[in-house]
Design a protein around this nucleic acid. Structure first.
Lengths: 114, 114
DNA sequence: ATTCTATACATAGCATTACAATGCATTGCT
DNA sequence: AGCAATGCATTGTAATGCTATGTATAGAAT
C-alpha cells in the first residue's frame, strides 16, 4: 500500500490533530467537539482518544499542560506544535489521495464530485 | 462510532466487492486491477486479499469456481451474488457518510468538493 | 533442455488499533 | 447527602492487514 497503514486503519489521528489545530482542547472536550463537527458520526471513546493523545505527545506532535481558573477544576489541555502541524499537513494530502482512490474504484471512473 | 468498524479499519472489503461487481475475476487479476483502477494507490497483498475472498464466500456474498481453457492454467474465479450486491450497496452509503464526516472535521466546514 | 521470472493460490504469525469495560476523582444540581 | 455528568486514565480483547513463507505452473530467455 502506498498510503500508510495508519491512515488506512483509521483516520482518527488526523481527526484529532485537526481539532487541535483550531484551538487547544482537553480530552473530554475533544470527544464532544468531534461528535458535533462530524454530525454525530464520530463518537470517540476514551479508550481510543487518550492513547492517541499520549502517543502524539511522546512523538513531539503536541504538548499538554494542566490548566484551570483558581478554585475550578483543572483540565489537561493539549496543544499542537510545529512538528504536529507539519505531520497533519502530510496526512491531509494522504487522505485526499486515499479518498479519491476509493472513489475511483467504487464508481469505476473518476469521481465527479456530485 | 456510527460507521461500522469494518469500514473504519479499512475499505478493503468494499473495494474488493466493487471490483467483482463489474465482472468475475480471479485473485491475482484483482490485485492488478485494483492497482490500475486506483492509480497505484492500492496494491493488495495476497495475505490481505485471499482471506477476505474466503470470508466473503463463507458469508454467501460471492461464489468461486475453477475455470480455464483446455490445456491452459486453471484459475479460481470469484463472482458476486445477490447478497453481496446488497451488502455492497449498504457499504457504499457508509463510505459516503464516513468521507463527508472526515472532510467536515478536516476542513472545519462543509466540504466544498473542490 | 534448463533456468528464471511472472503468475497464481494459500496460510501462519505478528503488530496495530479501536473498543468495551472499568476505575477513580471532581463538580453541579436537587 | 445523593446522583448524574464531567474528566483522565488503563487493561484486555477482537478485528484486520501485513510480512513471511510455501507450493506450483506457464512462458521467456539462455
Amino acid at each position: 500500500m502506498k498510503v500508510s497503514k495508519e491512515l488506512l486503519k483509521g483516520s482518527t489521528v488526523i481527526l484529532v490533530l485537526s481539532l487541535l489545530e483550531r484551538e487547544p482542547m482537553y480530552g473530554y472536550q475533544m470527544i464532544k467537539e468531534m461528535e458535533k463537527q462530524s454530525n454525530g458520526v464520530f463518537v470517540l471513546k476514551e479508550g481510543t482518544l487518550y492513547p492517541i493523545l499520549h502517543a502524539l505527545e511522546a512523538n513531539g506532535m503536541i504538548v499538554s499542560y494542566w490548566w484551570g481558573n483558581e478554585g475550578t477544576r483543572q483540565r489537561k489541555y493539549y496543544r499542537i506544535i510545529n512538528k504536529g502541524k507539519q505531520y497533519l499537513k502530510e496526512k491531509r494530502k494522504e487522505w485526499e489521495t486515499f479518498r479519491s482512490a476509493v472513489d475511483k474504484v467504487l464508481t469505476g471512473e473518476v469521481c465527479t464530485c456530485s
